[in-house]
Design a protein around this nucleic acid. Structure first.
Lengths: 172, 172
DNA sequence: ATATAATCGTTAGTACACTAATCTTTATTA
DNA sequence: TAATAAAGATTAGTGTACTAACGATTATAT
């Protein structure tokens, strides 16, 4: 019976680093701003562009549209944002920030940058560039594979970001 | 109001690569072996060591013990494994593979290695080594941070693996 | 122009992961 | 030894994702 050499498992390493990173962000941002889960990401998304549709936010924070519905419901009740019907296209709900959320954008972004510095401590710029290149290539390879297998990758999100698309994405 | 430079977002990159990678593995392994989610990981775990406790498996596949209960239930019903009471310690359920699962271990591992090669296509050994070093450092930094914040990181899983602990982990 | 497609928000249903709490059994310790 | 703590499996409850399907609205196509 064959066996896997786990120290070569890039999948394990990817998962571990993504998960640990997210946990740190989660802890810090929910403690300091009371915004857990996707909430703070939604606010960051809106700080980049207000008055966008729920679908657009979903793309930016990397979840499907239905996932966002109850979250936006709650955030609206809590006074962080408002839904407004789009007069140009009545299918759309346009989402806007309230004063309450606008006030916390700056400290929140500071907080995010702190976390980023902490996570990247003791890593040289040069190595980091290489790591980013490698990860980008991995995403490219894997999306290519998924696409060939039929399953249409949703609008090739990462590549999209690289190309400075107007659809900016949010995730720490 | 401040703004985040998303192209510098290592968090986004980590999440994207981990997610895409996992999706590819998921597609391939569920299509070829009908084993979705954690199921194939459990079999890989058992191929490394049989007769281990559910807790041990949970650690290996990176989930909490309760998450595994219904999954092992189903896999037992489907004939992939069996629970056996530990005569030495009656708290433990020891998990064993059946013939059915033993038979698919080798092709499954081949499949995993294929995916790994696909994902790492066009990436040089040297760059990959650097990327791994960087990711490991990130995990280290972040776990350190989480630990300081109180929240005890569960037994420092990744470091554990590096140290060739007997607790081997499974994740592609 | 009218029929057909596609899109946004939503609901419903499912799956999965987590935490907290419970039961049983084993370890510790006073 | 008796009391207390700890550990494995489980249940219950919650949160969060996802897909599939629907209604309303807008775009496309014949």
């Amino acid at each position: 019976m064959k066996t896997l050499d786990l120290k070569e498992s890039i999948g394990l390493l990817l998962k571990t680093s993504a998960k640990t990173w997210e946990k740190a962000a989660e802890m810090e941002l929910s403690e300091r701003f009371g915004l857990a889960g996707s909430k703070w990401k939604i606010i960051v998304a809106l700080s980049l562009k207000e008055g966008i549709t729920q679908k657009h936010i979903a793309d930016m924070v990397f979840v499907e549209a239905p996932t966002l519905v109850p979250i936006i419901d709650r955030m609206e009740k809590e006074g962080y944002l408002t839904r407004q019907a789009d007069p140009k296209d009545r299918r759309n709900n346009l989402i806007f920030m309230t004063q309450k959320s606008k006030k916390i954008v700056d400290p929140m972004i500071d907080c995010i940058l702190e976390i980023r510095n902490m996570g990247l401590n003791k890593i040289s710029k040069k190595d980091m560039e290489i790591a980013k290149k490698v990860l980008t290539q991995i995403v490219g390879n894997t999306e290519e594979f998924i696409r060939q297998k039929g399953e249409n990758t949703d609008p090739d999100i990462w590549t999209d970001l690289q190309n400075k698309s107007q659809k900016t994405l949010v995730k720490l």
